[in-house]
Design a protein around this nucleic acid. Structure first.
Lengths: 189, 189
DNA sequence: TGGGACTATGTCAAAAATGACATAGCAATG
DNA sequence: CATTGCTATGTCATTTTTGACATAGTCCCA
């Protein structure tokens, strides 16, 4: 049994609803799946070759725009089984690398007024993302994506989490901005 | 100006409140800072050497337990300045790699009953982490860490976010488990 | 008709991260 | 008195990820 990397599983996940080209996968790793798992094309193409060698995906080819052939990849029966087995396994606890929180830990080393601006900018950035999430969430719901039996329910559920958790983050950023303002006023006296 | 990696800044952050040995940093990257930034010792020791070469940290040495000297690292004035300048800069948007959410995207490829167990296990794991967060949060508050002027306020603020956002995650996991149960019942009919 | 964006596939070097190995004193536990 | 765990520092090979380069057809807009 060939061992599959996390990236490999991410590609199998992306392919679970139907065939896609490498280019399609690059797009998905940027936008919908990219919210919780990303990869560059320089990772994706070699990984597709590995999955293919392991017999988990297959493709057919036709003439494409560039000098190479356009390949449409799909899961094999083995790929679908491997994916299904992995899905139900408890995830290995991963490191959540959050730069804004890291900066918060050391915030005493920076100027409170500058940090206040930092948190306000963060809040705005998350607000824009939230608007995006809400739009997609509503769009999917209008097409019955909120039905657990609907093939898009998985995508809907990831947006549900985004729509629930992003406001908490915004709230925290605003709270931080308030604390920094308070500290600035106290320092000024 | 030597460019500093994200890991380098993480170490500068960890050192902002006072000198630490490499071993101390390894511990911090596992427990308090590790909740939002992690690194293994095999990364930390070489990075300390780089920061030292760049003049951002310095150390004094005494005889230690093993065959090598024990070194206590602290920020230099240049290190403190570099850190302060970095803190107020808006973070480069990072990929949040969340395996459980990735699995959710492809959940249609798995058995609903097994997925229900998956989300219940996730909820429990997050509940345990929340208990831990709440204990540390309360502990810091009891020592005035909730005062923005207190040197520990940065650490307190990171826990504040954890205490706010983890319940949302647990709620979502339970909601997912419910959806999976519903789907299982429907499939059974 | 020229320039830019989009489709599409890949390679390469470099940097970052992981997991395992290596060394050694000191303290506690059984 | 042997084993285990903790302090403490480092190396090494391998894997993963990043960022840049390379190629080429089509479509759209000015």
């Amino acid at each position: 049994m060939a061992t599959v990397s996390a990236l490999g599983y991410a590609l199998l996940c992306a392919l679970h609803r139907g065939p896609l080209t490498g280019y399609d996968l690059v797009q998905r790793m940027a936008k919908p799946i990219g919210y919780y798992w990303t990869a560059r094309q320089s990772q994706i193409y070699p990984e597709l070759a590995r999955l293919s060698a392991a017999g988990l995906i297959e493709h057919d080819a036709e003439d494409g725009p560039g000098p190479r052939q356009r390949k449409t990849h799909r899961l094999t029966a083995a790929g679908r089984e491997t994916l299904a087995a992995w899905l139900v396994e408890p995830p290995a606890p991963r490191a959540p690398r959050d730069e804004a929180v890291l900066k918060t830990y050391a915030l005493a080393a920076a100027d409170p007024d500058r940090m206040r601006e930092f948190y306000l900018a963060e809040a705005e950035a998350y607000q824009r993302r939230l608007d995006d999430f809400r739009a997609q969430h509503a769009e999917l719901r209008s097409r019955n994506g909120d039905d657990p039996a609907h093939p898009q329910f998985g995508a809907y559920a990831t947006l549900e989490l985004a729509v629930l958790s992003t406001p908490v983050r915004i709230q925290w950023c605003r709270w931080m901005a308030e604390r920094m303002a308070e500290l600035g006023r106290r320092r000024a006296r």
